[in-house]
Computed example of a mutant assay.
Amino acid sequence: MDSMIFDLDGTLWDSTDTVLLAWNRLLKDYTKIKREITKEDLQGVMGLQVPEIGKRLFPDLDEATRKRFLEESCIVENTFIGKQGGILFEQVEEVLKILSQKYKLFIVSNCQDGYIEAFYQYHQLEKYFIDYENPGRTGLSKGENIQLIIERNKLSQPVYVGDTEGDRKAAKYAGIPFVYAKYGFGQVSEYDYVIETVDDLVRIF
Results as ranks from 00 to 15, higher is better:
122 Y>G: 02
74 C>D: 07
149 I>R: 09
40 E>S: 14
77 E>K: 03
22 A>S: 15
34 K>S: 15
66 R>G: 11
91 Q>P: 03
112 Q>D: 12
36 E>M: 08
5 I>G: 12
30 Y>D: 12
115 Y>K: 10
54 G>R: 08
18 T>D: 08
153 N>L: 11
130 I>F: 09
98 I>Q: 05
49 Q>C: 03
112 Q>W: 00
75 I>V: 15
168 R>Q: 12
14 D>Y: 10
34 K>E: 15
146 I>M: 09
69 F>E: 02
117 E>Y: 01
132 Y>E: 05
137 R>Y: 14
21 L>F: 09
132 Y>H: 14
158 P>R: 04
150 I>V: 15
131 D>A: 13
29 D>M: 10
112 Q>V: 04
81 I>G: 06
141 S>V: 11
123 H>D: 07
106 F>K: 00
34 K>I: 12
161 V>H: 11
23 W>Q: 04
93 E>A: 00
25 R>M: 13
14 D>F: 05
17 D>C: 06
57 L>Y: 02
96 L>T: 02
205 F>D: 02
96 L>Y: 04
125 L>K: 03
69 F>Y: 14
122 Y>W: 01
54 G>C: 05
90 E>D: 07
63 E>Y: 04
58 F>N: 01
25 R>V: 08
27 L>G: 04
179 V>L: 10
181 A>H: 12
130 I>H: 02
203 R>H: 01
133 E>Y: 03
70 L>E: 08
88 L>D: 02
184 G>I: 06
120 Y>T: 08
120 Y>G: 03
15 S>I: 05
54 G>V: 07
29 D>F: 03
147 Q>S: 15
137 R>A: 12
49 Q>I: 09
42 L>A: 09
9 D>P: 11
29 D>N: 15
107 I>G: 06
178 F>A: 05
140 L>A: 13
96 L>E: 03
79 T>L: 15
117 E>F: 02
147 Q>V: 02
59 P>A: 08
70 L>A: 10
146 I>Q: 10
167 D>P: 04
195 I>C: 07
182 K>L: 14
56 R>Y: 03
5 I>P: 06
95 V>C: 06
52 E>D: 15
41 D>W: 00
9 D>H: 01
16 T>P: 07
167 D>W: 01
123 H>R: 09
171 A>H: 07
163 D>E: 13
59 P>M: 05
162 G>C: 14
194 V>P: 05
194 V>K: 03
180 Y>K: 07
63 E>I: 13
116 I>F: 01
120 Y>P: 06
62 D>A: 03
181 A>M: 05
9 D>I: 07
34 K>N: 15
160 Y>C: 13
53 I>V: 14
168 R>G: 00
161 V>I: 15
49 Q>K: 10
168 R>M: 15
54 G>W: 12
114 G>D: 06
149 I>F: 05
6 F>R: 02
92 V>K: 01
135 P>T: 11
140 L>R: 12
175 G>Y: 03
157 Q>C: 05
136 G>Q: 09
34 K>Q: 13
112 Q>H: 09
24 N>W: 08
